[in-house]
Design a protein around this nucleic acid. Structure first.
Lengths: 137, 137
DNA sequence: CTATCATGTGACATTAAAAGTCACGTGAAT
DNA sequence: ATTCACGTGACTTTTAATGTCACATGATAG
C-alpha cells in the first residue's frame, strides 16, 4: 500500500500560504512543493469545498486562505481531504457466518477504532497556527 | 494502497487450528480459508519463526500450535506478521530544511504515534483465546 | 472585444505493496 | 522408492494513491 502523504503536504502549503499576502497560483505552488500544478488544483479543490481556502480565476488570481490558521484545526484539514482511511491494515467484512471469523475481525476493528479515535482527537486539538508557532521556537 | 488483512485472517486460522487435534496441511487450510496453499505456507512461516506454531513435513504432517492460545496475544501475532505498517497515511522525511515542512511532518507523526501506541496496547491486552471465548457467548 | 491568465475536471499513465500463483527443491513417513 | 507436505524464489495480478495531459470555463487587462 502506498501511503497518503497529503495531510503533512497540505499543512505545509497552508503554512506558506499564510505568509504570502497576494493570491498564489497553482503553478507557483507546484514549483514550491514539487507538485504538478494540476495536482495542486485538485488537492486544494477539496479544501475549497470545505471553506478553508478560496480561489480566484484570471489575472492576479490564485489561492488564498478563507479563515485564519488559528481557526483551522488539523482535523479540519484531514476532513477536507476526504477523511482518507487511516489504516494500512484492515479487517474486511467476514465472508462467512463463522463466529470465529467474526471474533477475529471484531477484535482487529476494535483496536483500529481505538487508535482512530486517538488519532482524530490529536488532530482536533492542534490548529495549523500552532504548527507555525512551534516552527518559530 | 491495498489494505493488509493478514491479522484478522491469521487470527481466524489460529482459532480453527486450536479446534483440530491433528496437524492441518496447508492444502486443507487453503480450502478452508480461500487461500492458495503456497500463500498459507508463506504466511504461517512467519508465525513459525516467532514460535507460535510448528510445522512437520511428510505423511501426517502439517501445522499445529506450539503454545496454547491463552499465551498468544494479538500483539504477538501482529509482531509475527512482521509488524506491518499500521497507517495508510504518512509523513515522509521532509525533503527540505524548511521549518514549516518539519512542523507539518512532526505534527502528523505525533498523531500517528499516539494512535499507534493505543493500537498496540489494545492488541497486547487481548489473547487469541479471549476471542474464542467471545465467539462462544 | 479579444488575448491572456488561472482555475476546474475528465481521462489516462505511473507507482507501490499486498495478494495470489507457479514451479521446484527439501525432508519425512510409509 | 514413492508419496506427502513444507520452504521458497520468481513472477503476475490487483488496487488505490499519485501524477500527468489536454482542454473547457471563467475572469481580468488593455
Amino acid at each position: 500500500m502506498r501511503t497518503d502523504n497529503r495531510l503533512p503536504r497540505v499543512l505545509h502549503i497552508l503554512l506558506h500560504l499564510d505568509e504570502i499576502d497576494e493570491p498564489v497560483t497553482s503553478e507557483r505552488m507546484g514549483e514550491m512543493f514539487g507538485m504538478d500544478a494540476s495536482l495542486v488544483r485538485r488537492t486544494m479543490g477539496g479544501l475549497r469545498k470545505h471553506g478553508l481556502v478560496t480561489s480566484t480565476k484570471g489575472h492576479g488570481g490564485g489561492w488564498h486562505l478563507q479563515r485564519p490558521l488559528s481557526e483551522i484545526s488539523l482535523m479540519d484539514v484531514y476532513i477536507a481531504l476526504g477523511s482518507p482511511s487511516v489504516f494500512a491494515i484492515g479487517a474486511p467484512e467476514p465472508s462467512s457466518p463463522c463466529l470465529l471469523e467474526h471474533a477475529a475481525s471484531d477484535a482487529t476493528r476494535a483496536a483500529m477504532g481505538a487508535a482512530r479515535q486517538v488519532f482524530e482527537k490529536e488532530l482536533g486539538r492542534v490548529s495549523v497556527s500552532d504548527l507555525a508557532r512551534n516552527a518559530r521556537i
